[in-house]
């Protein structure tokens, strides 16, 4: 989903504020919540958890602290999976649950072929996908040209795995994008962004023709035109 969590390249969040001698947790409830999530393994996979955070309504998402978002996500999943009821929570004096966007359910998808479609050095274009559900393809790379740098091997596909659609295992690649391809001429010419992308996010791109190849093509066209 094109949610508020997909922040790469946005403006408006101000300077990065740092804290000297920051504690691991800022209050005991953060520590208890962290431990609770780590110890209670029955709330689903990491993709479901991330997507639960994404489904928190955007204004609430922006106005919550990091662990408040974790708390919302845990509560959303526990209720959706029928492990806790709203009434049980209310009876304990907790706030009413969050009106999160309902989860999308997918039918199990066929597995992908395991053979890698791309190899290091291959030019690619990140597909312009805008799925309604969970995805790990951020907006800032969609439609942009990049180069495959490494093949990390086979991993579960978040876009199906977050929605009961199965793992649809496929190759994940380290893909490099020139900063100028992503952000235009204001970016430094030497800089790159490397991001890990699943095969379903990528399509093959023709190698970008060099200036000399373009000149040769134009010269050939001109020659043909002059012969006519």
């Amino acid at each position: 989903m094109n949610g508020i969590h997909d922040m790469g390249g946005m403006d408006g969040f101000g300077p990065v504020m740092r804290e000297e001698h920051e504690p691991v947790f800022h209050s005991r409830w953060e520590a208890r919540l962290f431990g609770l999530l780590a110890a209670c393994r029955r709330t689903g996979n990491a993709d479901e958890f991330r997507h639960a955070i994404e489904r928190i309504p955007a204004p609430r998402h922006l106005n919550s602290s990091y662990y408040e978002r974790w708390l919302d996500a845990l509560q959303i999943l526990l209720i959706e999976k029928g492990m806790l009821s709203r009434d049980e929570l209310l009876a304990r004096g907790a706030d009413p649950p969050i009106p999160a966007q309902a989860p999308m359910r997918l039918k199990p998808m066929p597995p992908r072929r395991a053979r890698a479609r791309f190899r290091p050095g291959d030019p690619i274009v990140a597909r312009n996908l805008n799925p309604a559900g969970h995805t790990r393809l951020p907006r800032y790379v969609r439609g942009k040209r990049g180069v495959v740098r490494r093949d990390w091997g086979i991993y579960a596909f978040p876009d199906t795995n977050a929605h009961g659609g199965g793992e649809r295992p496929q190759h994940v690649y380290s893909v490099a994008f020139k900063a100028r391809e992503l952000w235009g001429a204001s970016a430094a010419s030497r800089d790159w962004v490397y991001i890990d992308l699943w095969e379903d996010y990528l399509q093959a791109a023709a190698p970008r023709s060099s200036a000399s190849a373009r000149r040769r093509r134009i010269a050939a066209v001109n020659r043909r035109a002059s012969k006519r």
Binding site: M17, H26, W29, L36, L71, L89, G93
Partner: peptide, 19 residues
Amino acid sequence: HTRAPTGAALRVKALEALL
């Protein structure tokens, strides 16, 4: 970032107790 709303501590306590 650091604002700790009064509700969060209570909610975590409720969740932990229920689980």
